[in-house]
Structures are given as C-alpha cells and as structure tokens.
Amino acid sequence: MADKTVLITGVSEGGIGSALSVAFHEAGLKVIATARNINKMANLADFGIETMALDADASKIKKLDILVNNAGAGYSHTAKELFDLNFWSAVRMIQVFLPLLMKSENSPTIINQTTVLSVIAIPWQSTYNSSKAALASITSSRRYELAPFNIKVIELKTALVASKFLDKPGVSESIVPENSIYAPAKSVVGNVLKKNPPNVIWRGETMLPERFVKDAINKVSHLNEIEKLIKE
C-alpha cells in the first residue's frame, strides 16, 4: 500500500478525519491530512502524517489515489453556509482532483462522508440533513458517471461516533461509547481497500427506523409541547 496516496479533508484532532488519517497511515498508505487551520492537526505529527492547509497548497499534490471528502459542519449556520461546506466543497474537491484520480492505476476511489440523517428526519436539523442528502444523491450519480473511468465512488454514511463533532456550538449532546472512534475508522479503511468495496459503508451507533423513535424525537425536541400550545 506504500505507493497509494490518500487525501482527507476536514481533519482536526478528535474528529473522524483524524481517525481516518491514522487508520489509513497504519494500513501503509501515504496520507495527506488537510484542514483550513493546520494547527488543528498537530497531533498527527507523532504518526509522521503529512499535513497541509489545503486552500493554499492544493497545487502541490501531484499524485492521488483516494480522495476522502470528510469536511463538514452540523452546528448552527445559515443554509447557504451549510450547503457550501457540506455539499459544494465536496463537489469542488472532486472537480479539482479528478484529473489526478483519472491518472491513477491503483484503484482510484472517492469517498464522500454523509450521515444516516440524510435518510432519517430529525427536527431542527432540516438544513444539515438536506445538505447531506444532496451529497448522498450526487454520490450515487457520480458512481455511475465515473465507473467507465474505473473510479470507485463510496458513500460513508455515519451515525453517532465518539468525536468532537458534537462539541460545536448549537449541536445537541448525545451519549456515545468512549474511545469508539478508531475501531470504526479501521473497519472503514478495511472496507475501502477491498478489491470490491461496498458502495455504501454504514458506521456508528445505528438509529432505529423513524416509526420507533418518533415519540422520543418529539419529546427531546419539545415538538410535543409546541403542538399543545398551538392547539390551545
């Protein structure tokens, strides 16, 4: 795997991008971990992982086999800001690095990180959910469009994992298993590096179908209280 290069966006200490960087590195790949703030990736220096501020250094990348579009946000932003980060940034990354992926003879792959909330309705998160649903949809289309060029397109659909993602302002707290982030990351890498990887990789604490959690969702989101006030 030493001749395979993977670029991961949205990497910061304690996040899924950081865990994936370590997992790919331990699998023997050359990892390029990227973020807008390079200081957020200082922990990766101990692993010997290359880091860069992607906005400034993208032109320096001359070889690429795997692109992981991990950057995203789930906290309170305007609809445009969330779509710019969760959807349009991934579209732009594919446009920029597609020429390098087309040159790869080493199982070129694109991985787009979405969420189970792209298929499960949760109140107060409609903009976030829809931005990820849009990414899930374009991932499926890109899979067909790039198949003739031997480029695999995988959707990484995650539920709750132990990361700092929920530390962002405006994101509700959830109870997740301690130190669970690296085991899922290693299993994701294992699936990605298979000869015939799955089109969609599901990881994280799975959620029950909506019909089983509707009452719980209404209670947690206080929608039941709002409904009572409206009817009074």
Rank of each mutant, 00 (worst) to 15 (best):
S221Y: 14
E227V: 06
T34Y: 00
M52S: 14
N43P: 05
A33D: 09
V96T: 13
I217E: 07
S141A: 13
S118T: 09
L67S: 14
A90G: 00
L85T: 15
S12V: 01
E225G: 05
A162Q: 12
I49H: 09
V176C: 07
S187N: 15
L64A: 10
N39E: 15
V91N: 05
F149N: 12
E50D: 15
Y182W: 08
P108K: 02
N196Y: 13
K60Y: 10
I32Y: 06
E26N: 08
Y144C: 10
A162W: 07
E26R: 11
L135V: 06
K40W: 11
P99Q: 03
V161P: 00
A35D: 15
A53R: 15
N69R: 06
G48E: 14
K63E: 15
P184W: 01
N191E: 15
S187E: 14
K168Y: 13
S126D: 06
V200N: 01
E26A: 07
V153E: 04
I217Q: 08
E26I: 01
R92E: 15
I94Y: 03
L135P: 00
H222W: 09
K186T: 05
V153W: 01
W88R: 05
P169L: 07
L193D: 10
R92K: 15
Q95S: 14
K157Y: 00
L156C: 02
M93D: 07
L160I: 08
G15W: 03
T158V: 12
K30I: 06
D3A: 10
N150R: 12
K228N: 06
S131E: 05
I201S: 09
V213L: 13
P197S: 07
I175L: 13
F97L: 05
E81D: 13
W202P: 11
V116G: 15
V119K: 08
V220N: 02
Q113P: 03
T115W: 02
V176P: 07
L117R: 02
S137V: 05
L101H: 05
L223P: 00
S104M: 10
G190S: 12
A19T: 04
K164L: 01
V192H: 06
P197T: 11
E105H: 14
H25F: 10
K30N: 11
K195G: 09
F212V: 07
R143C: 02
S174V: 13
I217V: 14
G15Q: 03
V189W: 03
N69F: 08
K4R: 15
I110M: 09
T115P: 04
R36I: 03
T78Q: 08
I111A: 06
L135A: 02
F97N: 02
S104E: 12
I94P: 02
A45V: 11
G10R: 00
S180Y: 11
P123V: 12
I111G: 06
A71M: 12
